[in-house]
Simulated scan of single mutants.
Amino acid sequence: MTDIHPTAIIEDGAVIGDGCRIGPYCVIGPKVQLAADVVLESHVALAGRTSIGTGTRIFPFASIGHQPQDLKYSGEDTRLEIGENNQIREHVTMNPGTVGGGGVTKIGNNGLFMMGAHVGHDCLVGDHAILANNATLAGHVELADHVIMGGLSAVRQWSRIGTGAIVGGMTGVEFDVIPFGSVIGDRARLAGLNLVGLKRKGFPREQIHALRAAYRAMFEGEEGTLLERAERCAAEADDQSLVRVVTDFILEKENRRFCTPRDGD
């Protein structure tokens, strides 16, 4: 049965799924939709055209779906879509999309958004994302699946973070981060591969060894540009799926800049 505390305010039009638990002093706007078994602990503010998937749990003082922090926003009916089984901790903020960015911000499934994390307008966040305390995504950021953002890290607008990448604490990301990459520094530099994450996910040893060799060829080689080296690695990858994930990411879009190792790393 749905359990709604008497102090909660639920505006007409809001949809509350079966088994939801709405704690004290929560405020739910008229266009919000909660799937089954969503839990709002207390003092949660949900606004806008926001949908939240089954089993997601939101902790006190989170502000979800309020208007984008974009001066061009003029009240357009844009959306925030949050998937299933996410944990959204205290003081997290998530904004809907804007017309200029496609009109929707999307959050995948099984994510952990720790205290004070921020997801800006028009972001696309994959499954199993972890944003540690006060990690910040500016507008239009793309986070693939299984990305980890360290505490107090930040990603500049329009940047992409590839699958399985890890961003160190207090790191500012200005350019794209390759899949399975590890970046650190006040301005992010590529410090290698997220080998711990690769091993934890059970990828075969030979695939990891092939990826390490391709990484050296692309980022430690001296012949040609990064794109040219990535093209050579892609042509030689055969059935090396991890290598192809990285080369496809690099070659997918034109005129992108990437976090790379600094001289001496």
Rank of each mutant, 00 (worst) to 15 (best):
T2K: 10
T2C: 05
I4S: 05
I4A: 04
I4K: 00
H5D: 13
H5A: 04
A8K: 01
I9Y: 06
E11F: 07
C20N: 01
C20D: 11
C26Y: 03
I28D: 02
G29W: 08
P30V: 10
K31Q: 13
V32P: 02
L34W: 10
A35S: 12
D37G: 09
V38Q: 03
V38I: 02
V38D: 02
L40K: 01
V44L: 06
A45G: 10
L46E: 12
L46S: 10
T50Q: 02
T56M: 07
R57P: 00
P68Y: 09
D70N: 08
L71V: 13
L71T: 14
K72C: 05
Y73R: 00
S74V: 12
L80E: 00
E81S: 15
E81L: 15
I82E: 00
E84N: 10
N85S: 14
I88M: 13
R89T: 06
R89P: 01
G100W: 04
G102P: 09
V104L: 08
T105P: 09
K106Q: 13
G108A: 11
F113Y: 15
F113K: 06
M115R: 11
V119S: 09
V119Y: 07
G120N: 03
L124C: 08
L124Q: 15
V125W: 01
D127I: 06
N134P: 12
T136Y: 07
G139D: 02
V141N: 05
E142F: 04
D145V: 08
M149Y: 03
G150L: 01
A154E: 14
A154L: 00
V155L: 14
R156F: 05
W158P: 04
G162S: 09
T163F: 00
A165S: 15
E174K: 10
F175R: 14
G181N: 08
R189A: 08
G192L: 02
L198Q: 12
K199V: 10
R200C: 10
K201I: 02
F203D: 11
P204T: 05
E206V: 11
E206M: 04
I208S: 11
H209D: 14
A210L: 04
A210R: 06
L211N: 12
A217V: 05
M218L: 09
F219P: 12
G224A: 08
L226Y: 01
L227N: 07
R229P: 12
R229S: 15
A234T: 00
A234G: 05
A237V: 13
D238N: 14
D239W: 05
R244S: 06
V245C: 04
V246L: 09
V246P: 10
T247L: 01
T247V: 09
T247N: 12
D248W: 03
E254D: 15
R257H: 12
P261K: 01
